[in-house]
């Protein structure tokens, strides 16, 4: 089944420029409906209010990190708690990747990244675009 690119996508990053970059790259890939949050707590609130088809989140944010956001979503009572979650972060230690995987991340992109990598990871998570 083809991926519904009209799905709502939530981009979470404390750097406004990075949100803008990811938003533009997602637009180019064909996802027009994108919301933004500047940290995990804002994103968790938005997750509770709207149905998202994918979340693309940074890890290192305050007050709530991307890892805590991921755990909050996976541990929630929401019907959408299994929403595809891609971590996009500069944290590239093995222990980080293992911890993210154990918390339920669907894929992991290390910054800096390119459009091809983003598209490949989204395809791996959602299916052929």
């Amino acid at each position: 089944m083809a991926v519904d690119k009209t799905m709502n996508v939530l981009v979470v990053d404390d750097y406004a420029t990075m949100r803008r970059i990811i938003r533009n790259l997602l637009n180019q890939i064909g996802f027009p409906n994108i919301d933004e949050a500047s940290d995990g707590s804002a994103a968790l609130k938005m997750f509770g209010e709207k149905k998202y088809g994918m979340i693309v989140s940074d890890w290192n944010m305050e007050p709530m990190s991307g890892m805590d956001l991921l755990k909050g979503i996976r541990g929630s009572a929401s019907e959408n708690k299994s929403v595809p979650f891609i971590m996009v972060t500069a944290e590239s230690k093995t222990e980080n990747i293992i911890a993210a995987k154990q918390a339920g991340v669907n894929n992991y992109i290390v910054k800096p990244f390119n459009a091809e990598t983003l598209k490949a990871k989204i395809t791996a998570v959602l299916g052929a675009l």
Binding site: D13, Y15, T17, M18, I21, N24, L25, A90, K111, P112, F113, N114, A115
Partner: peptide, 10 residues
């Protein structure tokens, strides 16, 4: 250019 701009975050 978008890709290159991600340097600012890192």
């Amino acid at each position: 250019i978008y890709e290159a701009c991600s340097f600012q975050d890192v």
